[in-house]
Computed example of a mutant assay.
Amino acid sequence: MDKERLASWLHEREFIYSLLACLYKASPATQLLKTLSANRLLTSLVEDYDSMATPEQFAVYSAVQQLQDELDLGLKNPADYQKLLQADFNRLFVGPGHLAAPPWESVYRSRERLIFGEQTLAVREFYRSFGLETKKRRSEPDDHISLELEFMACLCKQAAKPDISTEKLNLYMSGQTRFLSGHILEWAPALCDDIRKAAESNFFRGLALLTKQWLKADAADTEMIASDLIV
Rank of each mutant, 00 (worst) to 15 (best):
F151D: 01
M152E: 15
M152C: 13
M152P: 00
A153T: 08
A153L: 07
A153Y: 10
A153N: 02
A153I: 01
A153W: 03
C154E: 08
C154T: 14
C154F: 14
L155F: 08
L155H: 06
L155T: 02
C156W: 05
K157Q: 14
K157F: 10
K157V: 02
K157E: 07
K157Y: 05
Q158L: 14
Q158W: 12
Q158R: 15
Q158P: 11
Q158N: 10
A159M: 05
A159E: 08
A160Y: 05
K161S: 05
K161P: 02
K161A: 13
K161G: 00
P162C: 05
P162D: 11
P162V: 09
P162F: 09
I164S: 03
I164N: 06
I164M: 00
I164L: 15
S165P: 04
S165C: 06
S165F: 08
S165A: 09
T166K: 05
T166A: 07
T166Y: 02
E167K: 12
E167H: 10
E167D: 14
E167F: 11
K168R: 10
K168F: 00
K168E: 14
K168I: 03
L169T: 09
L169N: 04
L169P: 12
N170L: 00
N170A: 12
Y172M: 04
Y172F: 13
Y172A: 08
Y172C: 06
M173V: 02
M173N: 04
M173L: 15
M173T: 03
S174L: 05
S174H: 08
S174R: 06
G175A: 09
G175N: 03
G175T: 08
G175H: 04
Q176R: 13
Q176H: 12
Q176F: 03
Q176Y: 09
T177M: 06
T177K: 12
T177E: 15
T177L: 05
R178F: 12
F179N: 03
F179Q: 01
F179S: 02
L180R: 11
L180Q: 11
L180V: 15
G182P: 13
G182A: 12
G182Y: 09
H183I: 08
H183G: 03
H183T: 07
I184K: 06
I184W: 02
L185S: 13
E186C: 13
E186I: 00
E186A: 11
E186H: 10
